[in-house]
């Protein structure tokens, strides 16, 4: 049981978070809530990568004195990748918010089913 908690539990949590996000995008009717669910999903992916870089007992990936044992440092690459992914997520959210403002301006609401009904009229 202990090995489950220290080992694979975190992956199950991340998978649950990811699926929660996907479910939120599919199930919500309000476009703003869909956008928030999308952010939750993206955070799950980011956390997944950060776990890959983590090591038990590892420290910051900055050379500490003469300690050159690789096992003492965490892997910095996933963190660097995720900085980029966070920027991507930020810009996607920005574009999405801008689109939402346009939708609100032109349709007066952000409930998907109403908007779709009015689009098809």
């Amino acid at each position: 049981m202990d090995s489950f908690i220290t080992g694979s539990l975190i992956y199950w949590l991340v998978a649950a978070l990811f699926l929660l996000g996907v479910y939120g995008i599919l199930a919500n009717n309000n476009l703003m809530k869909k956008l928030m669910a999308m952010n939750i999903m993206q955070v799950a992916v980011i956390v997944f990568f950060l776990i890959l870089g983590q090591k038990l007992g590892g420290t910051l990936p900055i050379l500490m004195g003469s300690d050159t044992t690789v096992d003492h440092y965490i892997n910095p690459l996933p963190h660097a990748l995720m900085l980029t992914a966070i920027v991507v997520s930020l810009s996607t959210t920005g574009v999405a918010l801008a689109l939402l403002m346009r939708i609100q301006e032109r349709y007066g609401e952000i409930e998907e089913d109403d908007i779709l009904r009015r689009m098809n009229e």
């Binding site: 996907v22 995008i25 476009l31 869909k34 956008l35 999308m38 999903m41 993206q42 996607t92 574009v95 999405a96 689109l99 939402l100 346009r102 939708i103 032109r106 349709y107 908007i115 779709l116 689009m119």
Partner: peptide
């Protein structure tokens, strides 16, 4: 209509 289409594409594309 394009704005709504783009928003839906954005959600699905991000997934």
């Amino acid at each position: 209509k394009a704005v709504v289409a783009a928003f839906r594409y954005l959600l699905i594309g991000t997934i």
